[in-house]
């Protein structure tokens, strides 16, 4: 990276620009946190005005009235299997697209990409009726299965492209040692692609955690809802309680921020290794 060719450039102005952009990314988060501990009257006093005391009761209101406890558990119940199964499927299907020949390979690939292009809003109504027919409405299953299905195209393409960049010699060596295909996949390919897998995991986690439309439509029972629905809950037809709403938003994003901060090193490594030819 040190060799990207601008090492002779002046440092200070660039550094200012960089940190300016860094600031721009965090200020809204800071203001969000600040608003979440204000009273409704404080909100009108200006964004940077501090409240007299931190109104943590906003969090209590969001947590209890918004039933965040239940929603949090539901989000976890849905996200974990979605991420895990999508990765497994992505690795297996990606393996096929990277190394194997099979009939209609190109057509199947085209069909998979549809899933990335067509917005969910476009097919949510037929999906609802289909799920109803399969008796899956109002279950965890419907949230898990549909979101796995939505993740398959990206997971497949992502894993396939990462596998294509592995040096063929390694695979050949393994095959010459007498390894079967599942063995090559599990013992050679997957360990080599660990960073790419963790990148994929993080992306799937973010997308699934933030998914709004599917749980909104496919689940009617309050006890099965996920967090993002809770986040927008405090909007009445005519009333809105900004501090409680922002407190709810903080509760929803906190887990993703934590996961991101823990995994971000690995994750960016994954991006990097995926792109290396």
């Amino acid at each position: 990276m040190a060799r990207s060719g601008v090492s002779t450039a002046p440092t200070v102005p660039f550094r200012i620009v960089l940190w300016l952009f860094g600031l721009i990314t965090v200020v809204p988060f800071g203001l969000l946190l600040l608003t979440s501990i204000k009273s409704r009257a404080d909100v009108l006093k200006g964004a940077f005005a501090l409240p007299d005391y931190p109104h943590f009761e906003n969090y209590v209101a969001a947590w209890t009235d918004g039933r965040f406890g239940t929603y949090f558990v539901n989000s976890v119940i849905v996200v974990v299997p979605v991420v895990a199964v999508s990765i497994v499927l992505g690795v297996i299907t990606g393996f096929a697209f990277a190394y194997l020949r099979f009939p209609f390979k190109k057509s199947i690939f085209v069909i998979l990409t549809f899933g990335m292009m067509v917005p969910t809003e476009a097919f949510i109504i037929p999906l609802y009726y289909e799920m109803l027919y399969l008796n899956l409405i109002n279950t965890y299953w419907v949230l898990i299965l549909t979101q796995i299905a939505l993740s398959v195209p990206f997971a497949t393409i992502f894993m396939a492209s990462a596998m294509r960049q592995l040096p063929t010699e390694v695979l050949e060596a393994a095959v010459l040692d007498g390894a079967t295909r599942p063995q090559v996949l599990l013992r050679v390919i997957v360990p080599l692609l660990a960073p790419a897998v963790s990148t994929l995991a993080l992306f799937l986690f973010i997308w699934t955690w933030n998914e709004f439309l599917l749980p909104l439509i496919l689940v009617n029972d309050d006890s099965l809802r996920t967090l993002p629905i809770g986040a927008l809950f405090f909007q009445g037809k005519y009333t809105i309680n900004t501090p409680v709403l922002t407190a709810g938003a903080v509760i929803v994003i906190a887990p993703i921020v934590v996961v991101y901060l823990i995994f971000q090193r690995k994750f960016i490594e994954g991006l990097t290794s995926g792109a290396t030819k």
Binding site: Y129, I217, D222, I229, G236
Partner: peptide
């Protein structure tokens, strides 16, 4: 009472669909 609260927008979006499917409230 098995209550589900929906924001005004959610309600108008989901109610007809759900009841038509023999589901919901």
């Amino acid at each position: 009472i098995n209550r589900t609260a929906r924001t005004f927008d959610d309600l108008s979006m989901t109610l007809k669909l759900t009841v038509a499917a023999g589901n919901g409230p």
